[in-house]
Amino acid sequence: MDTKNAAVKLESVNNMLRAAITGEIDHHCAKNIRQEIDAALLSASPDKLIIDMSDVTFMDSSGLGLILGRYTKAEEVGTAFAVQGAHGRVRQMFDMAGLDRIITFEGDVKK
């Protein structure tokens, strides 16, 4: 099967926390990603949290909950928040849920 469970790679640079998610975001793997990002967010207290979704290959509504939850968490601790590289179908999902009115989307990540 050509499915790849989502994973997250965390990187902290200049007090900015970047969480790069890869693979397929569904309910099965959303919880682990949530816990990893939240642990890093609370321990690093960065100025900004960036979720990089350039390499997300599939996302259902579990991804909407995951991103909205991280946005809320960042707000709570006074950290700026942005989503980068949400392309095609992933971006369409956010727009459908109206999250484009709440969350800052930045352009594709330069590779």
Binding site: S61, S62, L64, G65, L68, M96, A97
Partner: peptide, 19 residues
């Protein structure tokens, strides 16, 4: 209904049927 969920604490978005 869009955004309706009985499981908000687990960050369910309530968008499943809408999708």
């Amino acid at each position: 209904q869009p955004l309706y969920t009985t499981d908000a604490e687990n960050e369910r978005s309530g968008m499943g049927f809408t999708v």
